[in-house]
Amino acid sequence: MAKKHKPIRPLILAYCCNYCGYAGADLAGVSRIEYEPNVVIVRVPCSGRIGPEHIIEALKEGYDGVLVVGCHYGDCHFISGNYVSKRRFTLIKSILTSLGVEEERVRFEHISAAEGRRFAEVVNEMTRKLRELGPSPFVR
């Protein structure tokens, strides 16, 4: 994260798969849906690309929350990427919450290319919750 300017807080890192999540976020944009600006979107080829290391890294970098967005089950462009991603996500989330990291800081959502509004809602909801929780314990 760039250290030069003071980032918006809370700050969410959203890994969005190219075919659904990112397309959903794109739709939110072209439909001019207004939503909280507290999200940095990283477009990835498939949510299956995202594993525990990316979630850990985002927290270590000082993001207050991490969002992984994949397709609905059965819709994955690569057939099973979102299943794999969800399993990995579930395990690392379980470990993080066992260590006292708040549930709401790490979130997985299934959002299709047609659900621009849903994407905006998720970002708004997560931003509100993170605002209540306060800054991540890993902000240096």
Binding site: E53, I56, K86, R87, R88, S94
Partner: peptide, 24 residues
């Protein structure tokens, strides 16, 4: 951290459990 992450990703997620969130 990376070594741990790789372990969780490769071993934990190798189980074909459905729905995926039941793995935990």
């Amino acid at each position: 951290d990376n070594a741990i992450a790789r372990t969780i990703a490769s071993i934990g997620a190798s189980f074909k459990i459905e729905p995926p969130e039941r793995i935990d």
